[in-house]
Design a binder for these strands. Structure first.
Lengths: 148, 148
DNA sequence: TAAATATAATTTGATTATCAAAGTAATTGA
DNA sequence: TCAATTACTTTGATAATCAAATTATATTTA
């Protein structure tokens, strides 16, 4: 029970810290004209070659109106391209430009670096446990709060 | 190296999920007139009996102007009280009202529940490793990114 | 197959969170 | 004592977001 309070405190702090580190590092890097939420849109598109607006909005958990304006801005800044689908002309497909891909890669590298730094602190047994624990928690949250 | 990619993916997903769960649970609960960021202000004040505006702004990492408007709204909604310090009349002290304390407790309980749920998945050895690992990472981030 | 319904995206109008810079009032220190 | 500093608030601007209305297209159904 005491442990739970500890974990809670550490998690709250870790959470705030990570968000903060991400934001500050973005602001001093090559792609500082991107906000965190714009970077999250890029991150979301970047894992696929091409995505529809509605799928992207759904996984980002924003309304399609919100995504439309976000994508408008990313297009203006040269990170994203938009085209209408030929099969279903209601559908709009978005993909990263070369600049978008570079930003995606840079953000991925930052993430990897963060994780590598963190894992370097651990011995191989701890690393194994951490991975198991994180997967378990991930699965569990998806089940328990799947109404979300 | 492969592990790092796994940890990265899980963390990104876990992060998004936790933020989302927090927001959605807040919206269906008793204190649904509070936004997440308002709840974070309450959380920050709640650990102390009374805090100054500048200390609070600093730990929340927002400007004092931002905090002033946030506190204005929290006062309007009845969660926070503000008074000028007698010792130094430039200083403004804020504290939670009874309603604010109730909201704080409710949010704490939610956090505890989340952590308890997560920890239930683990045996005691795993739990121990998790706590050590989280503390190590927390300390490490504070050192590595303390420019932030 | 024409009309009704559903779907995908955008636009509109609003709110909230945020910042930087300017302003106000109180305190400190040379 | 008055210039500089500090603590906070106000102002004016911008980002991100939503819900609801709108437009265009596709699907279903009578």
């Amino acid at each position: 029970m005491n442990n739970h309070a500890t974990v809670n405190e550490i998690l709250v702090r870790l959470f705030a810290n990570i968000l903060d580190i991400e934001e500050k590092c973005l602001k001093v890097g090559e792609f500082s004209d991107l906000s965190i939420s714009e970077m999250h849109v890029i991150e979301n598109i970047g894992y696929s070659d091409e995505r529809t607006m509605s799928d992207t909005a759904k996984t980002l958990k924003v309304t399609s109106g919100t995504l439309t304006t976000a994508v408008d801005n990313l297009i203006k800044k040269g990170y994203v391209e938009r085209r209408r689908s030929a099969e279903d002309r209601r559908v709009v497909k978005i993909r990263l430009t070369e600049k978008g891909k570079a930003a995606f890669k840079s953000h991925e590298d930052f993430h990897k670096d963060l994780v590598t730094s963190a894992l370097q602190q651990l011995n191989s047994h701890e690393e194994e446990v951490l991975i198991k624990v994180l997967s378990d928690i991930d699965v569990f949250f998806n089940e328990k709060y799947n109404f979300v």
